[in-house]
Computed example of a mutant assay.
Amino acid sequence: MIPYGRHSIEAEDIDKVVEVLQHGNLTQGDQVPALEQALAEYVDVPYVSMVNSATSALHLACVALGVSRGDIVWTSPLSFVASANCARYCGADVDFVDIDPETLNISLPLLERKLVLAASEQRLPKAIVVVHFTGLSVDMQALQQLAGAYRVALIEDASHALGADYQGRKVGCCDFADAVVFSFHPVKMITTGEGGAVLTRHWQLHDHVRRLRSHGIEKNTAAIQSGDCPPWYYEQHELGFNYRITDVQAALGLSQLQRLDEMVARRRQLASRYDHLLGDLPLVLPPRGNEASQSSWHLYVIQLQQPQLRAELYAFLHAHNIGVQVHYIPIHWQPYYQQLGFSRGQFPLAEAYYEQCLTLPLFPGLSDEQQNEIARLLHLFFKQSSAELSL
């Protein structure tokens, strides 16, 4: 089976992990700070905090920005549920802004309209979780201008977008957001097995995130060094979490980061090949971005011009060992969010996209021959479907 996504592990990755297992600290040693520093240098941001998942990173970003009960957080309905759940963990309400069908990201005109209405009702969001769907950055400068006028905090959910570019800078540099979150799940750009990170340019937010990820505990190093406190002394200043990542995981991520540009380049090459191979089929191909925004191509999502064929195409490709997937069921369709008062039909653009989308395999290890076979099967399916419709 060719999956829709797959990690890329090479010998040097294994060697780095084994080295930690044999000679290093398994939990909190030198590999976590080394990965934080390397990632900070890669995206050109001063502060990085590694954690055990992107979900944890989103949660910590919300907490550190003061999201709490009585607040509201907005996000896109087209994302994994974690983009909304992070606000619920804080006791806050959630609402959604529909997508732009051209980019599949949050619609800035609809966002502007919603902000104007929310201001008139004195119900502005505390924060907006901005999803860079499939790895293509939202126009963050324009979004910041909209949100900044209302003093709304911005969290970039860049779980899909490590290695992506926006305005000549790497996504993650935090030029237009209070915090950026990355994911290191096995199907993402690089992996730590499971893992995430919070990036920011604000020292106080960074310091708060680092304390929260470790039970709310901190050590007063200066007091210990001066002898005012014994060397084992620590204090819990707030209720935090055990969201730390291990040195074993960080060693893997640090090794993988050295090949990130190479892997993103291969993803971009494969996306261009798909465009060429599938251009004459009855499909809407993914948005390509522009000079200002270059995707990292976490996902290659097609949309069927005949949505009624999706289930049949999904079954056909799986029968031929092609592991296509669907990203995503709109968050507001989930039973949990339906219980909170959301209903189908509220965000029609995201819903229309969902009804016709299908994610094709895309990962650095996908060979040209495998991709050619996927394209051949797609051509065969639509040829057979066309023949059946003509009978």
Score class of each variant (00 low, 15 high):
6 R>A: 14
6 R>P: 00
7 H>A: 14
7 H>T: 13
8 S>Y: 11
8 S>H: 12
10 E>Q: 13
10 E>F: 09
10 E>S: 10
11 A>F: 10
13 D>G: 04
13 D>F: 04
13 D>I: 05
13 D>P: 03
15 D>F: 12
15 D>T: 14
16 K>G: 03
18 V>W: 09
19 E>F: 10
20 V>D: 03
20 V>S: 03
20 V>N: 02
21 L>H: 07
21 L>A: 13
22 Q>I: 08
23 H>P: 01
23 H>R: 15
23 H>A: 14
24 G>C: 11
24 G>W: 08
26 L>E: 06
26 L>F: 13
26 L>S: 10
26 L>N: 04
27 T>E: 08
28 Q>F: 07
29 G>I: 04
29 G>H: 04
29 G>L: 07
30 D>V: 15
30 D>I: 12
31 Q>P: 02
32 V>T: 07
33 P>T: 09
35 L>Q: 03
36 E>M: 08
36 E>D: 07
37 Q>E: 14
38 A>N: 07
38 A>T: 08
38 A>M: 09
39 L>Q: 08
40 A>Q: 06
40 A>E: 07
41 E>V: 12
41 E>I: 03
41 E>D: 14
42 Y>H: 15
43 V>I: 11
44 D>C: 11
44 D>A: 14
45 V>Y: 03
45 V>N: 02
45 V>T: 15
46 P>L: 09
47 Y>R: 02
47 Y>C: 03
48 V>A: 00
48 V>Q: 00
49 S>F: 00
51 V>M: 01
51 V>L: 01
51 V>E: 01
51 V>D: 00
52 N>I: 00
52 N>K: 11
56 S>F: 01
56 S>K: 01
57 A>S: 13
57 A>V: 01
58 L>Y: 04
59 H>Y: 10
59 H>E: 12
61 A>C: 14
62 C>V: 03
62 C>D: 06
62 C>T: 06
62 C>L: 03
63 V>E: 11
63 V>A: 13
63 V>D: 01
64 A>F: 05
64 A>W: 05
66 G>S: 05
67 V>A: 07
69 R>A: 14
69 R>Y: 06
70 G>S: 11
70 G>E: 11
70 G>H: 10
71 D>P: 06
72 I>N: 06
73 V>W: 09
73 V>L: 13
74 W>A: 05
74 W>M: 08
74 W>C: 05
74 W>L: 13
75 T>V: 06
75 T>H: 02
75 T>N: 06
75 T>F: 02
75 T>Y: 04
76 S>A: 15
76 S>V: 07
76 S>D: 09
77 P>M: 10
78 L>Q: 11
78 L>E: 03
79 S>T: 10
80 F>W: 02
80 F>E: 07
80 F>T: 15
81 V>R: 10
81 V>L: 06
81 V>T: 13
82 A>G: 12
82 A>V: 12
84 A>G: 14
85 N>I: 07
85 N>W: 12
85 N>G: 01
86 C>V: 13
86 C>N: 02
